[in-house]
Simulated assay, not measured.
Amino acid sequence: MSIRLERVEAAHDVRVLDSAETFEITKDADEPEPDGTLSIITDSGEDGIQIAGTETALHGWLNRARNNLTTRTAGPRILCVLDLSTHHLPQHICDDLDDYSGVTAHDTEYGWLLYVPGMLTEHRVDHPDTVPEEVWQLWEYASRFDASYILLHSDADRVDALPSWDW
């Protein structure tokens, strides 16, 4: 994973007055770059910044930026929640998700709120045989995006990078 920063020359000092500035994620032209990079571009008229990298790298960068902002401003901690379809788990696992030792999951009306352990390697050592492999796959995918939780619900889209089951 890599992030490419491109220098942008400003005509004058830039001061951010509104942290809610919108940004867009774009691909150069209609096709992705050969290395699969995407760009986040923000601008306020004449001045701007472009951050380019893989999807995973950009999500990681945004999460680290948000965490650093929270730390430096003593603001509230905002957690990253990955939105996934319940179909990324077989039905028998979904039905009993909160019964597995090592899994923290909260039943919702349409699915589950699944906690992603912060230290997956250590968690796997502590729970080698009690957590289903399908849950490990979700956790590993969520960790790539620095997600603290996974919201599994029936209306969410399926992700091509993960297996899914029809039930």
Rank of each mutant, 00 (worst) to 15 (best):
R15M: 14
L17S: 11
A20W: 05
A20H: 07
A20Q: 13
T22N: 14
T22C: 08
F23Q: 00
F23E: 02
I25N: 04
D28C: 11
E31N: 01
E33V: 00
P34N: 06
D35G: 00
T37H: 07
T37F: 06
S39H: 05
I40F: 02
I40G: 03
I40E: 01
S44V: 13
G45V: 14
E46L: 11
E46W: 09
G48S: 04
G48P: 07
G48F: 02
I49V: 10
I49G: 00
E55A: 10
E55Q: 08
T56K: 06
A57F: 09
L58P: 02
H59K: 10
G60S: 11
G60Q: 15
G60K: 12
W61R: 05
L62T: 02
N63S: 10
A65C: 14
N68M: 12
T70E: 14
T71A: 15
T71G: 09
T71P: 06
A74Y: 01
G75P: 05
R77C: 07
R77A: 11
R77K: 10
R77I: 13
I78R: 07
L79Y: 13
C80F: 13
C80I: 14
C80M: 15
C80D: 15
V81W: 00
L82C: 12
D83H: 05
L84Y: 15
S85L: 06
T86S: 12
T86L: 03
T86G: 06
H87N: 12
H88C: 15
P90Y: 03
Q91Y: 09
H92V: 06
C94V: 09
C94F: 05
D95R: 14
D96G: 06
D99N: 09
S101A: 14
S101V: 13
G102R: 01
V103Q: 11
V103W: 08
T104G: 09
H106P: 04
D107N: 09
T108Q: 10
Y110I: 14
W112D: 08
Y115D: 15
V116E: 01
P117N: 07
G118Q: 11
G118H: 14
M119N: 10
L120D: 05
L120I: 05
